[in-house]
Design a protein around this nucleic acid. Sequence first.
DNA 1: CACCAAATGTCCCGATCGGTATATTCATGC
DNA 2: GCATGAATATACCGATCGGGACATTTGGTG
Lengths: 77, 77
Amino acid sequence: MHSPPETIGQAVRTARKGMGLTQPELAAAAGVGVRFLVELERGKPTVRLDRMLAVLDALGLELQVGPRGHNHAGPAR
Amino acid sequence: MHSPPETIGQAVRTARKGMGLTQPELAAAAGVGVRFLVELERGKPTVRLDRMLAVLDALGLELQVGPRGHNHAGPAR
DNA sequence: CACCAAATGTCCCGATCGGTATATTCATGC
DNA sequence: GCATGAATATACCGATCGGGACATTTGGTG
């Protein structure tokens, strides 16, 4: 539960399903390719920040920077 | 107040200075190029996630995902 | 003026990303 | 158990872009 890409990916997936969206739907909404979304959710560490932000934005999520070990409650449950 | 790249960049710069590091020093510590660090701090939106995480890690910072408009106190203010 | 930190331009290699077809996984129904 | 359909994962290709190193320039300061 740090900020490894895998965690972000899971948060994305959880949020996406929470909104009842499929990968193609979210990908379209975020303006990215489905392939990218798949890899993002699977925790690919080398994704581009802007595309990731686009996805998070489409999900109503946001990135925050904070000191390590300062996690809050589950964001997207 | 979202999570635009510029915000992250500023957080990085502030934290770096707070630790009394120069860009080359932090870049070396994070295992990235100086060029990258400069662009990251300046808010380049297309940086790669893994490199950004490496820098944040070197600074003792962490990336978190949360609902929009849920920013906490500045990390290294 | 010299010095230090920072920003920028160029060159070049390598990796990412997008679209599609295909495989694989999953859940559900018969 | 097996079939059916949907969602998701992977491979290929080509085009684009990131980022490392170097040198240079700019800006601030003693």
